[in-house]
């Protein structure tokens, strides 16, 4: 009973202080001059918007399931050439897009953390564009593809080993609409 009250008091106290902390000097959600969105409030994580892994929506794509489910493609240091081993998977997803013309994807370009941040954004975009161009060459409607480069701002493996760096240098294909 006593404990319950203490917990209640604690929650209220926490809220009051948290509100105070939020509203003090920083940016508040919904106060943008241009009526834009507040990143504080509900700027959702990018990863949450994909279709589920291993779903079987690709039945009609004609490619093997595994190939369609492979949606992360890795790159060499400072390079934006697609590896031979990834071309089958990218083709399977291209086929899916061509047979599902309302489907849409985002191609996220990423780099490892070394080097200059804005240069890495440019490098990440080159990687994502390499995948986008490959798909367009296969016949995918460009309207179905959006490219965004995060550079080194969303690392796959925040460690500093060569293995971590390899996991970071990637393009991730995300379905935003099936």
């Amino acid at each position: 009973m006593l404990l319950k009250h203490i917990v209640k008091g604690l929650v209220i106290t926490g809220c009051v202080l948290a509100l105070g902390a939020c509203s003090a000097p920083g940016h508040k959600a919904g106060q943008d001059e241009d009526g834009g969105y507040g990143a504080n409030a509900n700027g959702g994580g990018v990863q949450s918007s994909g279709v589920g892994q291993g779903s079987n929506f690709g039945d009609s794509a004609g490619g093997p399931q595994q190939s369609l489910a492979k949606r992360t493609y890795y790159f060499d240091y400072d390079k934006s050439q697609i590896r031979e081993g990834d071309k089958a998977a990218i083709s399977s997803n291209a086929n899916y897009l061509m047979s599902h013309t309302h489907a849409k994807i985002i191609l996220e370009g990423h780099t490892d953390p070394r080097g200059s941040r804005e240069y890495n954004v440019a490098l990440g975009e080159r990687r994502a564009n390499a995948v986008a161009d490959f798909m367009k060459d296969k016949g995918v409607n460009p309207e179905q593809i959006r490219v965004v480069s995060y550079g080194a701002q969303r690392l796959a493996a925040p460690g500093r080993t060569e293995h971590d760096f390899q996991l970071d240098r990637r393009v991730v294909l995300v379905y935003t609409q099936k």
């Binding site: 001059e33 969105y37 700027g43 965004v148």
Partner: peptide
């Protein structure tokens, strides 16, 4: 800022927190 899954440039007033896209 990459909010809403794309890059955009904002200018924010340091003292008021008001910002412009």
């Amino acid at each position: 800022s990459f909010e809403n899954q794309h890059a955009a440039i904002y200018v924010e007033d340091v003292s008021t927190g008001a910002r412009q896209l």
